[in-house]
Amino acid sequence: MLKPVIVQVAVPVPLYSLFDYLLPEAVEPASLIGCRVRVQFGRKSLVGLVVSTSHESSFALNRLKPVLEMIDTQAVLPSDLMTLLKWAAAYYHHPLGDVIFSALPKRLREGEPAVLKSENHWRLNAVGRGADADDLTRAPKQAALLRYLQSAEASEFTASQLNADWDNWRAPLQGLIKKSLVEVEEKVQSGTINESAAQPIKTQPSADSNFTLNAQQASAAADVIAALHSYQTFLLQGITGSGKTEVYLDIIEHALAQNLQVLVLVPEISLTPQLTRRFTQRLNTQIASLHSGLNDTQRHSAWVQASQGIARVVIGTRSALFTPLPDLGL
């Protein structure tokens, strides 16, 4: 008779222990580490994360509670990040469960799937852009909404945007759709900056910039580029305005050309928009921004796109260090 599989689960509570639970027989024990589970913890149901598996427990099997639900089919935190988080918990003498769950976006901590969500985007078609709202005399709400859509600066509208500017917009919008004035498209919610980039992985370094590295800059960039597929640290020293960012961009372009992801850490949130604009103007790739100033939807989407390799450049504060990046090279 096969011994039951016992999983050691970290839960987000201020306790230093892992907690043993029985894995249901219907669940395959392979690749469980790093997956989220739902477990009964006292009188509450909590989301936990599997840290290890075993066939032994210091408690009698009849005292162990079963896992209520397997939330993930594959790890949301890979083994290298799990090692880092365990080290951080030990070094700072902090409960492992709290450390692990601080590395996840709020929606993942609450048990939502680690997938990109989609939402409807509405836009006027050619007929709608040229339509005269005064012709809709028998539908005044549709006429008012049509004027709003025609006068707005945005070319597309989501539910959150319409909710902010318009009350009870769904019925008149549906009327405009039936009149073939508005069209709707379902799109994945994006936490990336450059949503229009059709090809997230470049094959050649960009030639868009007219900036040419001087001899010292080119030498510094070449040293880092030569070490892209190995571990090595570099210190790039230069005064303000000496062109350090151009060196970074040149190195990043070569990393992207080799199908590598890039993580750029900034010391504070206020620097993120400035750097993001600079990178967006130069790099033809998906750029995700990760910091505490994002709302839950933006952070979830950016985190998932980074963890799935969709976002090739991630710009963030120090907490972005705990984001899974499957192709990380710089």
Rank of each mutant, 00 (worst) to 15 (best):
L2E: 09
I6K: 11
V7C: 15
D20E: 11
Y21D: 07
Y21C: 04
L22Q: 09
P24R: 10
E25T: 07
P29M: 00
I33V: 15
R36D: 05
G42S: 11
K44I: 02
K44G: 05
V47M: 05
V47Q: 01
G48P: 11
T53P: 02
T53M: 04
H55S: 06
F59D: 13
A60R: 10
L61A: 06
M70N: 09
D72W: 10
V76Q: 10
L77R: 06
S79A: 15
M82C: 13
T83W: 02
L84E: 12
L84F: 13
L85W: 12
K86H: 12
W87E: 15
A88R: 14
A88T: 07
A89D: 04
Y91R: 13
H93S: 13
H93T: 13
H93Y: 15
H94S: 08
I100K: 10
F101C: 08
A103N: 07
K106G: 06
R107G: 01
E110Y: 04
A114K: 06
V115T: 07
L116M: 09
L116Y: 03
E119Y: 02
N120F: 03
N120Y: 04
N125P: 10
R129Q: 09
A131M: 10
D134A: 14
A139C: 06
A143D: 01
R147N: 14
Q150W: 03
Q150D: 01
E153P: 10
A154W: 07
E156D: 08
Q161H: 11
N163V: 01
W169Q: 02
P172H: 03
L176W: 12
K178T: 00
S180E: 03
Q189W: 05
G191P: 03
G191S: 06
T192D: 03
N194A: 11
S196Y: 09
D208A: 14
D208W: 12
D208M: 14
S209R: 08
L213K: 12
L213N: 09
N214P: 07
Q216F: 14
S219V: 04
A221I: 04
A222D: 04
A222N: 06
D223W: 01
V224K: 00
I225N: 01
I225M: 10
A226H: 00
A227I: 00
A227Q: 00
H229S: 00
Y231R: 00
Q232V: 00
G241Y: 11
S242D: 04
D250K: 13
I251A: 01
E253F: 02
H254T: 06
H254V: 02
L256A: 11
Q258C: 00
L260R: 13
V262W: 02
L265E: 07
V266Q: 14
P267F: 15
I269D: 11
L271Y: 10
R277S: 15
R278D: 09
T285P: 08
I287W: 05
L290G: 04
L290H: 04
S292R: 14
L294Y: 13
L294E: 06
N295I: 11
R299D: 05
H300W: 02
H300S: 03
A302G: 06
Q305G: 02
Q308T: 14
I310H: 01
A311Y: 07
A311N: 08
V313L: 10
A320P: 05
L321K: 12
T323C: 14
T323H: 08
L328H: 12
L328V: 10
L328Y: 09
